[in-house]
């Protein structure tokens, strides 16, 4: 970790610091929170301006905007991490299977994966979530988003596998009597880790974006405070018309900062890997 920090560029460092700051502060603050449920209406007076007690004021529904934002950020990150985990794990297993079994199985598996890559995800996500009428809880929502998160990593892992299979050190391992499973675990997985990490971060970003898009359509988890839902609730209560910029603006700014930081982290990390390999 120290080595990465030392050798990676400024882009990586800024990205890492901002992302870590947002993630850690939201997790720690939500753990430390002792007040009433932040979603409850009329917990405070409505439309208060920013003050020491309410750093971002209160909403037109009488909720504390700051704490709403903290919980929304944590929940959005949580959805992103769950979806990215599903996508990465399934994708790596799928890609490894296709790459090592080969032949007709590989071809069929790749046609399916390619279809999932090109199939337009948003319309299908709309269909699935619309059927549930926006009443999904976090786990099914993450599963539904996960349906479109595995195909890209699967394709990539398979490509890596195919090129690895012919490498000398894999052949050496095979001739020295190592089983296929052992080769995968000891030789290939470590090689995949750097790539999987970059893919994971990217999947977090994509999943948070998709969840917020669904939220704007009123199709995300209806009661879950997430960044997208927070924007949507503010829009539904005409916060833009009423110029309640703190309420509608704070989740917008948070999403922008989070996404730019994550993207800098990802591209900075990828540059670092490329440099390390001497590409």
């Amino acid at each position: 970790m120290k080595k990465v920090w030392k050798h990676a560029g400024a882009r990586f460092r800024i990205g890492l610091v901002v992302t870590a700051l947002l993630a850690l502060s939201s997790v720690i603050l939500t753990l430390a929170y002792t007040g009433t449920d932040i979603s409850i209406y009329n917990s405070f007076r409505k439309n208060l301006p920013a003050s020491w007690q309410h750093p971002l004021g209160t909403t037109a529904l009488g909720q504390d905007t700051f704490w709403m934002l903290v919980f929304s950020l944590r929940n959005s990150l949580m959805i992103g991490v769950i979806v990215a985990t599903i996508g990465t794990v399934v994708g790596v297993l799928y890609g490894l299977t296709a790459g090592f079994v080969g032949g007709a199985v590989d071809r069929v598996m790749m046609v399916v994966a390619d279809t999932f890559i090109v199939i337009p995800s948003l319309p299908i996500l709309i269909l699935m979530t619309a059927l549930m009428g926006g009443s999904m809880s976090v786990a099914p929502l993450a599963l539904v988003l996960g349906i479109f998160a595995w195909a890209h990593p699967a394709r990539h892992v398979r490509a890596i596998c195919l090129s690895m299979r012919e490498r000398d050190f894999i052949q050496t391992a095979r001739f020295s009597g190592e089983g296929l499973f052992q080769i995968i675990v000891t030789e290939i997985l470590p090689y995949l880790m750097t790539w999987a990490l970059s893919n994971f971060m990217n999947a977090v970003l994509v999943a948070i974006g998709q969840e917020s898009s669904l939220a704007v359509l009123g199709l995300s988890s209806a009661k879950l405070p997430s960044l997208g839902n927070m924007i949507q609730w503010a829009r539904n209560r005409n916060a833009i018309m009423a110029r309640q910029w703190l309420w509608v603006g704070s989740p917008i700014v948070t999403i922008i900062v989070l996404f730019v930081a994550l993207f800098m982290l990802i591209t900075g990390y990828n540059n670092f890997i490329a440099k390390k390999r001497g590409v």
């Binding site: 974006g209 917020s212 833009i240 509608v248 922008i256 996404f259 993207f263 591209t267």
Partner: peptide, 21 residues
């Protein structure tokens, strides 16, 4: 790099707030 990762509807909201309000 700054603009690319922002989702469409977020930028749309920002543009709407700036140019319409």
């Amino acid at each position: 790099i700054f603009i690319y990762p922002i989702p469409y509807f977020i930028l749309a909201l920002v543009v709407q707030i700036l140019f319409c309000f």
